[in-house]
């Protein structure tokens, strides 16, 4: 479809989608917060995964031609909407909640600033799936390889000083696929719209697994 963009404003790709949808209401995509925090509108723009709402058209399509595709590797439901169940299943697999076997105190559990800092770069994940669907290892083994998003969250709980299930968490990840299918390609890092680094988190999990084996 051809679209003349309004002068003087650098639209986001989501704005373009909204203009197109006003013209053809049958176009389907997910969107909500339109500010890059809800993670609904992960799509592939001119070959690169990202969030439509915070990607300027000038950046996605410097030469004026914008090709939009659904996130690669997941079954397509309609237009830009993919079936994300496989992605969510991998997230659920890593026990994505804090485990603490001691009864909670009357107030909050204390945590030092240094310990809290270890969660930065991990807890901010918005589950948009840009990383996992850019990962060839995930394309190949989406049922067995947890993928960068799931592993980033696995490490978020391993790194939390309040969590007491380190041994169980590592035991659940030590098979040849869950973690070790990561080949360090780093597509996840280059596409993450929140500038997070799953590869580094995966490296830390590997180190924990290996040092535990010694």
């Amino acid at each position: 479809m051809e679209l003349d963009l309004p002068e003087g404003r650098d639209l986001m790709v989501l704005d373009v989608l909204e203009l197109l949808k006003a013209r053809d209401p049958s176009i389907a995509y997910r969107r909500s917060c339109r500010e890059g925090v809800c993670g609904s509108d992960g799509i592939n723009m001119n070959g690169r995964n990202g969030l439509a709402c915070i990607t300027p058209v000038s950046e996605a399509a410097p030469r004026g031609k914008l090709t939009l595709r659904p996130l690669p590797g997941l079954p397509v439901v309609r237009d830009l909407v993919v079936d994300m169940s496989q992605f969510y299943r991998q997230y659920e697999k890593i026990t994505p909640w804090l485990v603490n076997d001691k009864p909670p105190p009357a107030q909050e559990r204390l945590q030092s600033q240094e310990d809290r800092e270890k969660l930065n770069g991990l807890y901010e994940c918005i589950l948009c799936a840009c990383c996992s669907t850019a990962c060839p290892s995930f394309w190949w083994n989406p049922d067995k390889f947890v993928g960068p998003a799931g592993l980033l969250q696995a490490y978020r709980f391993l790194a939390d000083s309040r969590d007491t299930a380190t041994a169980e968490r590592l035991a659940a990840l030590e098979d040849p696929f869950s973690v070790f299918r990561c080949r360090g390609i780093m597509n996840c890092v280059s596409v993450c719209p929140k500038n997070l680094n799953p590869t580094r988190a995966i490296g830390k999990i590997r180190t924990m697994l290996l040092s535990q084996g010694i």
Partner: peptide, 8 residues
């Protein structure tokens, strides 16, 4: 207690 990562 549920794990919310508050700043400290």
């Amino acid at each position: 207690h549920m794990g919310m990562p508050f700043t400290r």
